[in-house]
Amino acid sequence: MIDINLLSKKYGEQTVLDIDLLNIPSGQTFGLVGNNGAGKTTLFSLILDLIEATTGEVKNNEIVVSKDEHWKNHTAAFVDEQFLIGYLTPEEYFYFVGGLRNMKKDAIKSALEPYKDFFHGEVLGQKKYIRDLSKGNQKKVGIVGTLISNTPLVILDEPFANLDPTTQIRLKKLLKEEASATGKTFLISSHDLQHITDVCDRIVVLNKGKIVRDVITSSKTLKELEAFFQEQL
């Protein structure tokens, strides 16, 4: 699904990302961990063509993202609040995002149905604009916005941050179900090692812009990751 070749991003002299090779096959739930400044958001921004690569390129389904915009047809992403439209109600936001992907209003309504639990009655039908929702509820809106349109690739930057414990558990369940039921490819980053090992098939550790670990998740993975970050002290 994603093929990265000799990709780097420099700001002046400083290299913030330097990846020789990274292939993410279709259907994988791919987890990205690393400390602040490791390059997680930079990598996602490059995959989404929000910033320009210094060298190399990202291919999304064989499409070079910086040259051809058609990757947008099968990709949905939620990185930060820059992906929300504050003056819309959550419903209007979903109709907008879904509508751009040629979904009819009724289809969007029924696509929202499975997420009622996830919203916990605090998002839909509230007659509130997104800007007036709490940070956690805003995040829920952003995440669900990437799921309703059934794109084969979903990119979520730090989806667990700002969510309450119950919702974190719900989100884990949701992501696992989506991945197994629909065969979607997920790219997820997190600072929470427990959550990411629970959800992802494969975990890549970034450190100072480079890939330092690349493992298929097993029962030992969490321990190994904890050991790795312990070493960074």
């Binding site: 989404l48 063509d49 929000l50 915009e69 058609h70 947008k72 047809n73 990709t75 949905a76 992403a77 990185v79 930060d80 609040e81 820059q82 992906f83 929300l84 439209i85 504050g86 995002v97 751009l100 992907r101």
Partner: peptide, 10 residues
């Protein structure tokens, strides 16, 4: 304030 969203939608 939501330009990044616009740029990642088709």
């Amino acid at each position: 304030s939501y330009y990044a969203l616009m740029m990642t939608q088709n």
